[in-house]
């Protein structure tokens, strides 16, 4: 094997090592999905998604939850109920329905949202966010839970 061939092999090896390290660093440091910047998967009313979960929660989970956690990005229409803050200081918006006893709790992406200040209870609004939990009869709470959404904003 000539000296030139050995040099080329070493160079190729070094390039492959650098590429491998770069790929590893890129993959392990991939940013979280930008929910608000991503395409909406489903546009639906709160009553419709509630009806789907009431009739068959497993089928609804199959439809809306993803194995990797990158679950369905949904625009859900309902009525504004209230806001509060969670223990992380984030704003939680409660979406409700005029006809059903169901609530959707969504964590807003921003700690400050001017639009919220203008909302009054009963206003029709649409939120966009990622579903984290559907509603199920909760054995722990002995009642139906709430829908839980994260990374939300008002459309």
């Amino acid at each position: 094997m000539s000296i030139i061939t050995i040099r080329n092999t070493v160079k190729l090896g070094l390039v492959l090592i650098v590429l491998g390290i770069a790929t590893f660093l890129i993959v392990t440091n991939l940013p979280h999905r930008n929910v608000q910047g991503s395409k909406t998967d489903t546009q639906i009313t709160l009553e419709q998604v509630y009806s789907e979960y009431k009739s068959d929660p497993n089928a609804a989970d199959e439809k809306y939850l993803d194995e990797s956690g990158d679950s369905n990005i949904m625009e859900v229409s309902g009525v504004f109920v209230s806001t509060n803050k969670n223990l992380n200081g984030q704003i939680i918006l409660i979406l409700g329905s005029k006809t059903e006893s169901v609530k959707l709790r969504c964590t807003l992406i921003s700690d400050f949202n001017e639009e919220i200040n203008n909302l009054i209870q009963g206003d029709n609004i649409t939120i966009k966010g990622v579903i984290r939990s559907g509603i199920y009869y909760d054995e722990a709470l002995q009642r139906y839970g709430d829908f839980v959404f994260n990374d939300c904003d008002i459309k």
Binding site: N29, H32, R132, A140, V148
Partner: peptide, 17 residues
């Protein structure tokens, strides 16, 4: 009683999540 939505766990790195 506590009920925890498991997909709400947030990790610093998306791959871990």
């Amino acid at each position: 009683a506590f009920s925890v939505p498991m997909q709400s766990f947030q990790f610093e790195k998306s791959l871990m999540q």
